[in-house]
């Protein structure tokens, strides 16, 4: 996982850098779940759910993906640590999220924000973005 946490006066930022767009989405999901800090239910079967989204650009797609995953995490009481991407383009994603039910979360996340998000490939050929989570 290639992400780093950075400070923000009221919230928290994460900086993600990945070799592929697929990896960037997976790492972002992992970072969000790590931040939520689920106390997983042991010896519990994995739960899966399918998600399909469209957006105008990769940045919107990533933020919408995270917010959809957050909604599922909170309503299904399941921490999604893995995903299988069936399709990922600059403006469309189809994925199957896979997770484990939890007892509780260590931290509340209100939303993933668009604030400093900007998904782009840097000069070194890595995909990167910053994400600010509203806590």
């Amino acid at each position: 996982m290639a992400y780093e946490w950075h400070e923000h006066t009221s919230d928290i930022r994460v900086r993600i850098s990945a070799s592929t767009l697929e990896e960037l989405f997976s790492d972002a999901l992992h970072a969000m779940t790590e931040l939520l800090g689920p106390e997983l239910i042991e010896r519990c079967d994995k739960k899966t759910c399918r998600m399909s989204l469209q957006a105008d650009d990769p940045t919107s797609l990533l933020i919408d993906f995270l917010n959809e995953a957050l909604l599922l995490t909170l309503t299904e009481k399941t921490a999604y640590l893995d995903n299988t991407l069936e399709k990922l383009t600059g403006n469309e994603i189809s994925a199957v999220l896979s997770g484990i039910p939890y007892y509780s979360l260590r931290r509340d996340i209100k939303a993933a924000t668009y604030h400093e998000a900007d998904v782009k490939m840097n000069t070194g050929g890595k995909w990167e973005t910053t994400i600010v989570f509203d806590l």
Binding site: D56, N67, Y114
Partner: peptide
């Protein structure tokens, strides 16, 4: 939180 998330997504479009 979700009302705001929905609205920001819709308004961005």
């Amino acid at each position: 939180h979700q009302v705001a998330t929905d609205a920001i997504r819709n308004m961005n479009k």
